[in-house]
């Protein structure tokens, strides 16, 4: 991604660089949205539906260009499938930080959204994974059907397709190399 990260730096110097940005946006976002590699990270019940059933032949993530990766370094997408406890929260954050930019998160199931069935009378469950990492798409259900998690992935693809390369330079995460 070295060239791509430098693009906004060059573009700012070229008057009328907007035209190039648009087409570059289209290409980059298209390639990104159609090859979301997800991290194989399931904590509880939702992992069976969200990662195993949906990954198997009937629902098949592969149709959307999604392949599982065992290492966070190679993954673009983290599907938080299952309950996150207070003990696990710190590890989830570390896993998220280990993923390389750009990265996206889908919170799957009631537990990842707001604690699910463990919201009341429970002393050990984190009430929502968005308290530790930013979430892009929420998929409700306990567990959500494979169809709804696929719908969530399509929603994420739509979101990615609307992103702009020129916006990257404005986010804190992006630090252009001085030239």
């Amino acid at each position: 991604m070295g060239v791509v990260q430098k693009v906004p730096v060059y573009l700012e110097k070229i008057p009328g660089g907007g035209l190039i940005t648009t087409s570059l946006d289209a290409v980059l976002n298209w390639s990104r949205a159609s090859s979301l590699w997800y991290l194989l990270f399931g904590t509880a019940c939702c992992a069976i539906e969200g990662l195993m059933c949906t990954g198997a032949s009937r629902y098949d993530y592969d149709r959307f260009g999604m392949i599982f990766r065992a290492s966070p370094r190679q993954a673009d997408l983290m599907i938080v499938a299952g309950t996150i406890t207070n003990k696990m929260a710190k590890r989830v954050k570390i896993l998220y930080e280990q993923m390389s930019e750009p990265k996206y998160v889908i919170a799957m199931g009631g537990c990842a959204i707001r604690g699910g069935p463990f919201y009341y009378d429970c002393y050990s469950v984190l009430r929502g994974v968005d308290l530790v990492i930013p979430v892009d798409v929420y998929v409700p259900g306990c567990p959500p059907r494979p169809e709804s998690i696929l719908e969530g992935c399509l929603k994420l693809q739509q979101k990615i397709k609307k992103q702009k390369v020129s916006d990257w330079s404005k986010t804190e995460k992006f630090i252009p190399e001085p030239k």
Partner: peptide, 15 residues
């Protein structure tokens, strides 16, 4: 262990 301790036994006392 304990990364998935969801205090189900405690919840049982309140259901």
């Amino acid at each position: 262990i304990g990364f998935l301790h969801r205090s189900i036994e405690k919840i049982a006392e309140n259901r």
